[in-house]
Write a protein that binds this DNA or RNA. Structure first.
Lengths: 362, 362
DNA sequence: CTGAAAGCGCTTACAG
DNA sequence: CTGAAAGCGCTTACAG
């Protein structure tokens, strides 16, 4: 039986000959009801095709059982996997998922957060696009909104977060290249930042071993830091001509800088890409220039994308546990929503170096 | 100013010295208000950090400005792109997106639809996991819920839908192989179906040219039909040993059947994969067997994944406009939500054959 | 233009 | 165990 118009609790109560309070109790699963009335109500609900209106319930309880997520770009494999992890946990706990894209732009993120807050999500998972200016996130926290950060931290914002141990993972990858005999190793990274010229200053300080507040660095900067540390540990100089900045989250930008690198004297023998987008750009450049891996250039990529395992040769990568990151973030958020009050936690997930065939021994 | 507790319209009205009706009018942007009161209300709202509660508003208006989406698996590149397209249009129109995964299982889809309906989404975009049994979708339609189908149709369900012209696209791809001189062409497809043995019967009918109701066929069956039509048109026999059924949406299953195919006498000279998952499985098998493309086997894949353009050789593919499909679906849904009442539309989007280097001329 | 009142569809004390 | 009443935070007629 499927009626045209939506039945309400009042309709069901009327049909069952009980009060709306009683009907609500059996339909909502709270309070006690006699078996007899319960049956009548259930029967009436069935006949009328009753479907609870979650809005009305949420307005009273103050809970929507909905999680909000602000991802960079759901089309990107990194976010797609993280989202799937979040979704797995949300679904298992009966929560819905409201998803938006920020395209790594602060203005869009602010807008997304406002939308999700108005829709009264019970908590929010955000990949902050700006690790310094994030007043909207501070406000959210001040208002008591449960909040978990993924992939990046925000300066001064003490909330739960889950990320990859980027510095350690990049260091391990680059040391692996050095151990294979490579001495000139390139790196391609987004390194987006407002302050132009900052890269030089950063390199100078990192190479000198000056202390660097790495916690709130963007992942690509952290991975660059791991690259530099590997060089320092192994006693190798860092050649600034080998540290490539794409300047944006775009495969095209990465392709351009890698192309230039490989067609200018002083080429590296190995390349380290700092994420899936950079990896794709690098691959396009290498294909275009008909350079062979690993004969002409050894390669280690950050983030293990599907094609890297069946590509010939297999691509050696730093595998991030993307799905597990999403699941961990969702689990932490759910704990906060339940009211758990331990101090802010930072979960740094280890990345695994998966050795395949893209690194030549020199 | 960021207060701890949430301010309501009543709080703002009190602070501004007006009625809740007046405060609501300026904050909600409906009705008329004098400039003077408007200023007071805005000021008070600002001071109190007022944020509208979309739940309360929706309960009255009956509109949530939220779209529900049931995807197969948001981690899969096909769905990730489609979702991005939906998201683009939703966002541009101020709509939120509630997203769930069905994992192509009817039970999960039914559960998702129920969740989204209870949350009162204004409309639903679904990739139906069962093209025959879909009472939940019929019910939705009967209750007046705007509904758009993507990728698949449902028997007897007259609603808007957008899909790729699978038969034509597959036919074109296979004819391209035949034109290149191939006579033994394999195909790997999911071909999921309850009725075992159905493949043989289907092949027999299709090869005989019997009329087949193709509209509600699953995409993989439609693509198989295109494969068969290409053979008929070109006067080539269809060898059942070359029509591979993976039996599930899994790269592993595809890998297994392709491995068997390529290690059994009577190998094909070319292979057609019917979607991204099958393509991945096929690539794994070929890599494992160290078979070269296109020297040992020519290949055309359905759906143009990122890596196919920089793979060496480039993979010739049938490119589906995934993003545009999502955008079209969202646009159609929004029209229905606005109340437009034209008859159910079927948008069949053309797929483009992108020629790269994976097809050898024989 | 503005306010008092009713109401969206539920849940929550509170009597009985 | 059950019902009448109030109320969640808004919007919507309806007077004035």
């Amino acid at each position: 039986m499927t009626p045209k118009s939506k039945a309400t609790i009042a309709d069901v109560a009327r049909a069952a000959g009980v009060s709306t309070a009683t009907a609500g109790r059996v339909l909502g699963g709270y309070g006690y009801t006699s078996e007899e009335k319960k049956e009548h109500v259930l029967k009436a609900a069935q006949d009328l095709g009753y479907r609870p209106n979650a809005l009305a319930r949420s307005l009273i309880t103050g809970k929507t059982r909905t999680l909000g997520v602000v991802a960079g770009d759901i089309q990107n494999p990194f976010y797609a996997s993280v989202l799937r992890g979040i979704s797995n946990v949300a679904e298992a706990n009966g929560f819905g998922l409201l998803i938006t894209n920020s395209d790594e732009a602060r203005a869009k993120e602010v807008h997304s957060v406002e939308l999700l807050a108005q829709k009264q999500v019970d908590g929010l998972i955000v990949t902050p696009s700006d690790t310094r200016k994030a007043r909207h996130l501070h406000n959210l926290k001040a208002m008591g909104m449960p909040l978990v950060l993924i992939d990046r931290a925000v300066a001064g914002l003490m909330v739960d977060r889950v990320a990859t141990d980027n510095i350690a993972a990049a260091e391990q990858a680059v040391r692996h290249l050095i151990a294979a005999g490579h001495r000139r190793i390139g790196i391609v990274a987004e390194l987006v930042d407002e302050e132009s010229g900052k890269l030089d200053a950063f390199l100078a300080r990192a190479v000198a071993g000056d202390p660097i507040e790495s916690e709130t660095l963007y992942p690509s900067w952290q991975r660059l830091l791991g690259y530099i540390r590997a060089h320092r540990i192994e006693g190798l100089p860092v050649d600034p001509r080998l540290t490539l900045r794409a300047g944006s989250y775009s495969a095209l930008a990465a392709q351009a800088v890698v192309s230039r690198l490989m067609t200018t004297p002083g080429q590296p023998t190995a390349l380290f890409t700092t994420d899936g987008t950079m990896s794709e750009g690098a691959m396009r450049a290498l294909t275009e220039l008909k350079l062979s891996i690993p004969q002409d250039l050894s390669l280690i990529c950050f983030d293990d994308l599907d094609w890297m395992s069946f590509h010939r040769p297999g691509i050696t990568t730093v595998a991030q546990p993307r799905l597990a990151m999403g699941e961990a973030a969702a689990r932490m958020l759910l704990e906060r929503i339940r009211g758990e009050a331990f101090p802010p936690r930072t979960v740094l997930m280890p990345a695994e170096l998966v050795e395949r065939g893209s690194v030549a021994r020199l």
